[in-house]
């Protein structure tokens, strides 16, 4: 319980620091939204007039206070350019990015864990090394290149077996669930393959480290085969680490899928951020970045809590250090 409270306090402190960092970092960027709105025909006087109309001539502490005040009330502000609330803007783009990440993670896990187990347990060293090589090569292939290859193979109209759409998101969005899902297949495989290779390496490493552990030995002493012991006990014990890795992979994908989104022309969070930074729509960008970073922190929090749930020993250790040694 005490752990939970401390963890939450640190979470709040980190959020506050984050808001300061995001706010300050964006103020270093040259250019502002007023000159973007005014365009190449405008006179400096016109730019100045727009600046004061939008309140960009207020002092930084004042702007920060206003923004933070809004955040505390759950109001992330309104984009100066698109006129939509930042919340709705994030919502409509996350409706593409989050399903894409979840799909990618499913692909990654369904490739990574079985192959990782296989790489650790395969009988012949030749099979092991082939699988290990696949993991390394798979992780080294840039997603952009892998995506291009997939488009050349499966992209409708351009690929050798042109069967899957490779550009854009259907006009109807998720109102046409099948078309929407199909348009995410290639991008999900692209990110899933790369992330899957990473998960495969972690799974393999976890299992190999378990190979020599007392618990696996114990399980085998109780009559399990080595394979059984590894998969039933070893994998179970690795679960906590694998959850961390999956959580981190999930977090990485939020930024990682942006490249893939742009390759497949999906209007996800990446496209939104690039647009908003390009337009110097700072009110929107700072809320968006803040929310994304907060999401990272939240994932970290969840992973930590999940660790405690998966591995009760952790909880004991924080309450009375070393207690389990005596037991």
């Amino acid at each position: 319980m005490r752990y939970l409270i401390w963890r939450l306090i640190w979470f709040a402190v980190a959020l506050l620091g984050l808001s300061l960092l995001v706010f300050a970092a964006l103020r270093i960027l040259p250019g502002d939204v007023a000159s973007v709105m005014a365009g190449t025909n405008a006179t400096p006087a016109r730019v100045a007039a727009i600046r004061s109309r939008m309140g960009l001539d207020r002092s930084y502490p004042q702007q920060y206070a206003d923004w933070l005040g809004g955040l505390l009330h759950g109001n992330m502000g309104v984009s100066a350019i698109s006129g939509r609330t930042v919340a709705s803007q994030i919502g409509s783009h996350a409706a593409i990015t989050l399903p894409l990440i979840v799909l990618s993670l499913l692909v990654a896990l369904s490739i990574g864990i079985p192959m990782g187990c296989q790489a650790a347990l395969a009988g012949s060293p030749r099979v092991r090394s082939v699988l290990h090589t696949i993991a390394i090569v798979g992780g080294a292939v840039p997603a952009l290149w892998g995506g291009l290859l997939l488009i050349m193979l499966f992209g409708r109209g351009v690929g050798l077996i042109g069967i899957l759409p490779s550009q854009g998101f259907p006009d109807a969005g998720w109102h046409a669930p099948r078309a929407a899902l199909i348009s995410l297949i290639l991008p999900a495989i692209t990110t899933g393959l790369v992330a899957g290779a990473g998960i495969m390496r972690y799974t393999r490493a976890c299992l190999i480290s378990m190979e020599d552990s007392d618990t696996v030995a114990m399980a085998m002493a109780c009559g399990m085969t080595r394979r059984q012991a590894m998969l039933r006990v070893g994998l179970r014990l690795s679960a906590a680490q694998l959850v961390s890795v999956a959580g981190l992979t999930f977090a990485q994908m939020i930024t990682g899928v942006m490249v893939v989104e742009s390759l497949f022309n999906l209007p996800g969070l990446g496209a939104m951020l690039i647009n908003d930074v390009g337009n110097r729509d700072l009110i929107a960008v700072q809320s968006e970045l803040f929310l994304l970073a907060a999401f990272f922190l939240l994932l970290g929090l969840l992973v930590d809590l999940m660790h405690h749930a998966l591995d009760p020993r952790l909880g004991e250790r924080t309450q009375h250090v070393g207690g389990e040694e005596h037991a």
């Binding site: 488009i151 992209g155 409708r156 109209g157 351009v158 042109g162 759409p165 490779s166 550009q167 854009g168 006009d171 742009s262 390759l263 497949f264 022309n265």
Partner: peptide, 20 residues
């Protein structure tokens, strides 16, 4: 009439050849 915004030249060409 749908007007799609395709800032990337390669992506744009793909969109045309795939009939999007």
């Amino acid at each position: 009439v749908t007007v799609r915004f395709l800032p990337d030249d390669n992506a744009a060409l793909n969109a045309l050849t795939s009939g999007d």
